Computed example of a mutant assay.
Amino acid sequence: MSVENSTAARDDQEEPHPTQSLDDTVHQRVRLGILTIAREADRVEFSFLKKQLAVTDGNLSRHLKVLEESKLITVEKGYAGRRPRTWIALTPEGAQALDAELRALRALVLRLETPRPASGPPDT
């Protein structure tokens, strides 16, 4: 059975391909990193994210703006002593979006790890 025929057979029996459930806002590498790190803590400091994700200030700021405008995170500015700080926290919507992204990724991995049925005689 060709890949095309195998895919067509799967499509007749299954839901849409798992990649259709990936959210472009969440799925981007840096933004996914921000959301997952923020999930691990009540709030996370800008410089910690910058170091963990190996990005520049400007690059991180741009990704934070996208996530904040999408209401997936909150950004809080303040001071620790006399030093200005920026903290990021996951919103309930952000937690839901991250959960949906992880479900889609798990479905994709499961699809790839599930053995294909034995192929029959070639199509003619």
Rank of each mutant, 00 (worst) to 15 (best):
P18E: 03
K50C: 03
D11N: 10
H17K: 01
T25Q: 04
G58S: 14
D23V: 02
Q20H: 07
L64T: 08
G58C: 01
S61Y: 11
H63P: 05
D11I: 07
E14C: 11
K65L: 11
E45V: 09
K65Y: 12
K51F: 08
V55E: 06
K65I: 05
I34Q: 05
Q52M: 12
L64E: 06
S21M: 11
E14L: 13
E45P: 01
Q52G: 03
P18M: 05
T25F: 00
Q52E: 14
V44R: 01
L49K: 05
Q28M: 02
D23W: 08
H63S: 11
G33S: 09
L53H: 07
T19L: 14
R62V: 05
I73C: 06
R29H: 11
L53M: 03
R29P: 15
I73D: 04
E68M: 10
S61V: 04
T19A: 13
V44G: 02
L64W: 08
I34W: 07
S47C: 00
V55G: 02
D24F: 12
L32N: 13
G58H: 10
L35S: 09
N59V: 14
N59A: 15
S47D: 14
R29F: 10
D24P: 12
R39I: 03
K71Y: 14
R39Y: 10
H17V: 00
I73W: 10
L35Q: 06
H17R: 03
E45L: 03
G33H: 08
D12R: 12
V44W: 00
T19D: 11
H17W: 06
R62H: 13
D57R: 00
T19F: 13
E69I: 01
I34E: 07
L53R: 03
L72I: 09
S21A: 14
N59M: 11
R31P: 09
E45A: 07
R43G: 09
Q52C: 02
